[in-house]
Design a protein around this nucleic acid. Structure first.
Lengths: 184, 184
DNA sequence: GCGTTTGTACTGACCGGTCAGTTTGATTAC
DNA sequence: GTAATCAAACTGACCGGTCAGTACAAACGC
């Protein structure tokens, strides 16, 4: 009987969960290997270094996130596009909470080894929002508006995840979209 | 002539700057002491432990932030209150960028030693926004709406700080308030 | 006035422990 | 038979925390 997950995937799943909670430096490779049920040597065999393992988590995560955001808004414009992006971002936060936390913790840091990788998270995610803004509201500042929309959804999503998990995604989406789309 | 800063303050200033950039675990007490121009022992003499030093940064920061937010909205309701809170939060992010980064990086983690301290940042900051929402828009969900408003401002502010520092606070405030107050 | 004591702030060498990464040699799976 | 994995020991750097000692000024005794 073959495992559902490869050794590589087992290590990645354990790593992202531990690092999201404790941070990169506070998580040891021994911890990751133990949590993955794998020998420490296998981590280095598969990824070469702790940093490279971490970068693989970022790279996979940003790819998954941006692909899902682009797919979600495909063919939509204006308020419908924004609604779709907000919904999909909340879905992604709910499905991959560890990546969301990790990203939030690292994205505004500077001078790290993986700055290049982590910067892509912001660049490519914000870009999807910025494109929608530029298409439908050309008079608005695309990048600052994108950051505002992304931030509103992200923080509401993390609040949901960490402090109000009993809420439904519908409630959270309504709160975000009401705030964004209906004048206070 | 006496120094402007006490040893305690020198250590705190160095610590918050380093920790905001690298994270708590990745910043050594030696680094902090060197940056502050004091001996390592002085850090432990003044704060007892690395964790206690960190908690003092959080406690001071949350006090300053919530006081300034409350003062800013005093006597205002509705859209004017929201405008004042957004403006003041952006001001605080601009004046104390290190605290803003540190807070963003730590606030959604769980299980840390300083969870108690860091949780106050969220509780007390969000509360100011939630009160305004509850007063003026009773039909909306106060806590999720507060998270949305706070997140929109915070992420736009950090985007400004880290990636578009040449922008003026007026531009950033306009982008946030347009998105929140004017229907897309 | 002046030696002594006391309290406080600070110092930096040092210690025990932890961590990333290496090495080795055996074992498994295709 | 070879690529992947395992277990375990090891290395060298680094880190949080300790501690014996220094500096110095205020308080005290005479």
């Amino acid at each position: 009987m073959s495992d559902t997950f490869t050794t590589r995937e087992l290590i990645q799943r354990a790593a992202i969960s531990l690092i999201a909670d404790r941070g990169f430096t506070a998580t040891s490779v021994d911890d990751i290997a133990t949590a993955a049920g794998v020998a420490k040597g296998s981590v280095f065999y598969n990824f070469g270094s702790k940093t490279a393992l971490f970068e693989s988590l970022i790279d996979d995560g940003v790819e998954r996130l941006t692909t899902s955001l682009r797919t979600a808004r495909e063919g939509l414009t204006g308020r419908r596009a924004v609604g779709a992006l907000v919904h999909e971002l909340l879905e992604q936060i709910h499905t991959h909470p560890d990546f969301a936390k990790l990203m939030t913790a690292e994205v505004f840091r500077t001078g790290r080894e993986w700055e290049e990788s982590i910067r892509q998270v912001r660049d490519r995610s914000f870009a999807v929002f910025a494109e929608v803004v530029a298409e439908s509201w050309p008079q608005r500042d695309p990048s600052l508006t994108a950051a505002t929309l992304f931030g509103a959804t992200l923080v509401a999503g993390l609040e949901w995840l960490a402090f109000q998990p009993e809420r439904s995604i519908v409630e959270v989406r309504r709160a975000v979209l009401s705030t964004i789309l209906d004048p206070l």
